[in-house]
Design a protein around this nucleic acid. Structure first.
Length: 118
DNA sequence: TCCATGACAAGAG
DNA sequence: GCTCTTGCCATGG
């Protein structure tokens, strides 16, 4: 059992629960205006790797309630899957929440980085 | 079953 | 600061 926040706990089940479910649970904990990177999420689920987090996001249905747009890579940049449609949808969603992007199109983790209390 | 691929990260050179 | 390499594992052909 890991403590994510004061009111949130997750069970460290290895085979019982799909790992994805835990990843989604973590992502759902990210508050508005904050962002987290894959490594951070993977670190919270010690038996998880950034690869899996990325894959979990890719497998996420579009109608999901998971704020996938708050998950970006370790460089503070958005990893866009397709070059075509919905290019800036993620950035747009973040800006709507108050996340600022610099001229490089990256966010400042020291400002909007999600800090988790362990 | 094997092989290639993928929204990544961290370390080495 | 940048490129290359390795770890890790679900998914699809």
């Amino acid at each position: 059992m890991k403590k994510i926040s004061d009111t949130f706990f997750i069970t460290e089940t290895k085979n019982e629960n799909p790992i994805y479910q835990q990843i989604y649970d973590i992502v759902r904990l990210i508050p508005e205006g904050k962002v987290a990177n894959y490594g951070q999420i993977a670190a919270m689920l010690a038996h998880c790797t950034p690869r899996m987090v990325g894959y979990a996001m890719a497998a996420l249905p579009s109608g999901s309630d998971v704020p996938w747009h708050r998950v970006i890579n370790s460089q503070g940049k958005i990893s866009q899957r397709a070059g075509g449609d919905g290019e800036n949808i993620q950035r747009l969603l973040l800006e709507t929440e108050g996340v600022e992007f610099d001229s490089n199109g990256s966010v400042d983790f020291s400002k909007v980085g999600w800090k988790v209390l362990k």
